[in-house]
């Protein structure tokens, strides 16, 4: 669904680019403009330390996470308040996922996985606020998240199992002649993991937002007769709410699955 969505969005972007060439037509749809990184306090140059809209929306994500998990649970109620219920739900959800998918010995990775999940899910939902900036729609962000997982998995694997970790690529249940070929395939798939891991998240989020923007452009162009685009925006927005959670869930559960390889590398 995600891939299809992505292609549809790209097609729409291209079509809109062709049909509504911004230089010529009064109707200009810039579906990708919402992803532009801009400095918060003016200026043209973006250095690595410049506070940008990325900074702002990541800061808001941190604020939201603190609000939910820290202030939400500050009452420490035996009977939880609403915010505390949500915080406990998120805690239990990820904790159980780590325990079930990766194993009981992976609980020491729980804060790390919880960090990834909370950041992605919060950023995704903050990005659904109209006029906001979606940090998880950028490959720079998701690539770093995916690389962190990749590096963590690789280092953990070698630290815990040493050279035996390479047994992950040596399929001992296959016939001997096939093993080198399988090893190459396994190796490639191992290194492709972070790529798919990062593109899946950013692609889904970006595609959905671009589609929303395209429909919004149509709605703006049609003026009072924009029933269809507005209906489409509503439907796509509902889907995006779903995608925002599901992609965070998928990213997290894949992290757990990869970590399982590092902790228990036997096939």
């Amino acid at each position: 669904m995600g891939k299809l969505f992505f292609y549809v969005a790209l097609a729409l972007v291209l079509v809109s680019g062709l049909v509504f060439a911004p230089e010529t037509a009064g109707l200009a749809i810039h579906p990708m403009e919402q992803f532009t990184v801009t400095p918060l306090f003016g200026g043209d140059h973006i250095a690595w330390y410049t506070p940008t809209n990325v900074t702002l929306w990541m800061f808001l994500a941190v604020v939201a996470i603190i609000g939910l998990l820290v202030f939400g649970s500050s009452n420490r109620g035996i009977v939880p308040s609403r915010a505390q219920s949500v915080a406990e739900l998120a805690y239990g959800f990820i904790y159980k996922m780590v325990e079930d998918v990766t194993g009981k010995d992976a609980v020491k990775f729980f804060p790390y996985i919880m960090t990834l999940f909370m950041f992605i899910v919060t950023a995704n939902f903050l990005g659904l606020i109209p006029m906001s900036f979606t940090t998880t729609s950028h490959f720079a962000v998701t690539a770093i998240l995916a690389m962190l997982v990749f590096v963590t998995v690789t280092i953990t694997g070698f630290v815990l199992h040493g050279a035996k970790f390479l047994g992950l690529f040596w399929v001992s249940s296959a016939p001997l002649a096939l093993r080198p070929i399988l090893a190459i395939i396994e190796l490639i798939s191992y290194f492709v993991r972070p790529v798919s891991h990062c593109i899946r998240l950013a692609g889904n989020v970006m595609a959905g937002h671009a589609v929303l923007k395209v429909f919004a452009g149509f709605a703006g162009a049609l003026g009072a007769g924009a029933f269809l685009p507005i209906f489409a925006i509503t439907a796509v927005y509902a889907l995006e709410v779903l995608v925002a959670f599901i992609q965070a869930y998928v990213f997290t559960i894949l992290t757990c699955v990869y970590l399982k390889d590092a902790l228990h590398p036997s096939h």
Binding site: G17, V37, I46, T52, V54, M58, A140, I144
Partner: peptide
């Protein structure tokens, strides 16, 4: 004009730092 800001590598350092 319809290029992807995601592929504007000049902002990568900034995003990665703040991330």
């Amino acid at each position: 004009s319809s290029g992807m800001p995601q592929l504007d590598f000049s902002t990568y350092g900034n995003q990665i730092f703040w991330l």
